[in-house]
Design a protein around this nucleic acid. Structure first.
Lengths: 210, 210
DNA sequence: TAGATTGTTAATCGATTAACAATC
DNA sequence: TAGATTGTTAATCGATTAACAATC
């Protein structure tokens, strides 16, 4: 797999995927780089470069064939390989994420939902049961899990992280607004929704709409 | 206000804010650019440039005074000005967001929670009641709201957006994974969590942890 | 003072955009 | 064919990083 694709390009690919899926739903057969560019408010040359980066090519005069383009994106982004993951923290956000069916389309399969609140353990969320953290290593081994989502309160996040790392988790998607300490062989990405909101408001100001 | 601050810098500021808040909780009085840089995995020169961009300066040899730095960030990011906003779509994610107290720290005040499901209207979520969309314009006027958060299913998102725009909303933070059409005087930011997840997994691969 | 850390200029790097040839 | 759209090279732009002087 080409590892030279740039991070900005990588971040745009899922949006191309959404657009091509919607185009298919709408019954389109081809889509042009200019159409995609307009929807995402980027340059159309950039769209073509991004698409070229994953090895797909369009047809001059007609554009990009939506079904093939979709397939190439799924292939490049690995949506066909099922990735087992667990989620720790069955609060409102945790429950919202575990109920979101959209993730399956992207290859994410939640195989465990954990919390330490005795009142929550055993509760059924969609097709999943909330488990005690005591069952963690058992489930990680059973499903060969390397990915974890953390939606616990910030004060517990480092403890949970330490436990996950000790249990062999290699990639952590954390919604706690703190910097987590992990060894070099573990990757953490912090999804701080309050920070995202702040950026959104700042950008709105910059566009002079507020 | 300096409008020349770059977007990448702008996106890092909320993370500096988290770090300085945590440093204060930990009882620190000063923090160095190198410490911040390490936590965020960026260059320390960049941290100093970012801080300089909002007009704050540290002290050679000691670093940045945490309380003053925090104040400057709050000031620049406008956390002291209360921003009224509404949320449309009282599903799991919508409820999770409306229960999240963290937003208040960033100046966001949710003054209305809307849904069109009759079974949900009237329900109490934290200190808020779910309202019918019929009450929309009333509440927007009463609280002078220009910001909306959309957590409705993707198929309804464009309809809701049209309604919000017609009612005078100027900035929309949407969690629906589709490109929304809005006039030029309205700003939309799409927060596609599935796309964010995909990027997270790709980055983990790139770091060779998976 | 010596040393550590900031502030800032200059150099580098890479992403975006412009121009235009290739192609169906 | 003519025209539209892709593919690609070159130019630009701006963000990051390196080097080092300023300062407490």
């Amino acid at each position: 797999m080409d590892n030279n694709i740039s991070v900005p390009t990588l971040k745009r690919l899922p949006y191309y995927y959404n657009i091509v899926c919607n185009a298919i739903s709408a019954g389109d057969q081809y889509i042009s780089s200019a159409e995609i560019a307009k929807k995402l408010d980027v340059d159309d040359t950039q769209v073509r470069k991004d698409i070229a980066a994953i090895g797909y090519t369009g047809k001059p005069k007609v554009g990009f064939e939506v079904h093939e383009f979709k397939k190439q994106l799924e292939n490049y982004l690995g949506f066909n390989e099922i990735r087992n993951a667990i989620l720790v923290g069955a609060g409102n956000l945790g429950i919202a994420l575990s109920r979101y069916e959209g993730f399956e389309k992207y290859g994410l399969k939640l195989v465990g939902l954990f919390d330490n609140d005795p009142a929550k353990i055993g509760l059924q969320i969609a097709d999943k049961k909330i488990c005690s953290m005591n069952n963690l290593s058992e489930i990680l081994k059973k499903y060969n899990v390397e990915i974890a989502i953390i939606t616990v309160p910030a004060i517990y996040a480092q403890n949970v992280t330490d436990l996950l790392v000790k249990s062999g988790i290699k990639a952590i998607w954390s919604f706690a607004p703190i910097s987590l300490n992990v060894p070099d062989n573990v990757y953490v990405r912090t999804q701080d929704l309050a920070a995202n909101f702040t950026t959104f408001v700042q950008m709105a100001h910059r566009k002079n709409v507020l």
